[in-house]
Write a protein that binds this DNA or RNA. Structure first.
Lengths: 207, 207
DNA sequence: TGTGTATTGATACGACTGTATCGGAAGCGG
DNA sequence: CCGCTTCCGATACAGTCGTATCAATACACA
């Protein structure tokens, strides 16, 4: 039969267009028409791929969540991989918006994050992501305890919660960084975070 | 001459109405008409107080920033006041959304925060707030160093940056907490943060 | 090559947006 | 009590929103 088209690929393309707009002007600038224009197709085409705007937003959101989850899962901390301090440092540095792509991604994240404060579905998705990060961090912190790399006074479970909050803070602080500003303060925060959680010194050894 | 009205008071009232809406449905639900209805006045009256919507948003934002700044400045850490650990714990616990008012405030904050990722004026205001917090934290950390309460390996300047990020993370994580959820994870994060930064133990001494 | 169906762009609709304009209500100085 | 100035609510306007509808198009198969 006639005229077939790769639907999933185009759905992802439309979602990417939405994120480009969201990175530029926030979720407020996102409409069926603007997204269609950014994607280079007509508004009618967008309507067919996503019958309603909520579905479009939800899809783009889940796509963004997946991208962030993938970014985290790329760095595994544990036996045979990176040590705890190095791994933690890598995760946190990965959130620093050193290039435009990462800065754009952070701004999109901030937009969706704010929506999660108001739309329960979004909040649930972020809570799920928390769950994933929690188990990953639990494993990493457990490994740190084995290696004696966790700061002596820290309760492992509590350390996991601290790191969760820290990651959110890094990511969102990054979102509001103006284009020309220096990343040094954030780099300092990363150094301090690694030092505080591992109990090591941030002054002499590394850098 | 005729008919006088307290303009500033009503401007604040309108801004408060805006924030109530923002806490409930986000900045997307904010329009001249909805704000007017929430404030119990006509749309024309809002227009007189705020000729343009941007001015209204900016005013409400600055009001919210002032409220947050005031919340922080209420707790002074230093000689004669609270010790560093207690003061830090108090600041962080103050961000926990234990009541509805605080949760609403956090959601409003998230909305404005996301806008700061996209509107340079908002970003500048938050950067100014960072400046304020930075000097306050510098004093507190300096005091901690004197008292030997700072974790031994931590660079004071870096510790300040870490705390800045941490506060943002606490506040924004709070914003997306569903109404019924427990605050225990966040309380754990606070305990860990205090322990990690002071170098003390989070297991036995306090709690 | 013709045919039938999946896809498309355009157009229509009602609701809502921000903003401008304006006639009447309201209150104080005389 | 009057006049004048400030305030207020309503209405008007052009634009955009999300969504529905529909004729025209483009393609795979016979």
């Amino acid at each position: 039969m006639p005229k077939y088209v790769d639907k999933d690929a185009r759905r992802r393309g439309v979602a990417a267009a939405l994120r480009r707009i969201a990175a530029r002007e926030g979720l407020e600038g996102v409409s069926i028409r603007t997204v269609a224009a950014e994607a280079g197709i007509s508004a009618g085409a967008v309507q067919r791929d996503f019958p309603t705007k909520d579905e479009l937003l939800a899809f783009a959101f889940h796509d963004a969540v997946d991208a962030v989850a993938e970014r985290f899962s790329r760095i595994r901390i544990g036996p045979g991989r990176a040590g705890f301090a190095e791994g933690l440092r890598a995760v946190l540095l990965d959130l620093l918006p050193v290039d435009d792509e990462r800065r754009a991604q952070a701004r999109v994240w901030a937009a969706f994050y704010a929506r999660a404060a108001v739309v329960p579905d979004f909040a649930r998705t972020l809570a799920d992501l928390d769950g994933l990060s929690r188990t990953a961090l639990r494993a990493a912190v457990g490994y740190a305890v084995e290696q004696g790399e966790l700061a002596p006074g820290l309760d492992p479970e509590e350390a996991v919660e601290l790191l969760l909050v820290l990651v959110d803070g890094m990511w969102l602080t990054a979102a509001r960084r103006p284009p020309g500003a220096s990343v040094d303060p954030q780099r300092a925060a990363v150094d301090a975070a690694v030092a505080a959680v591992t109990g090591a010194s941030s002054r002499e050894p590394r850098r």
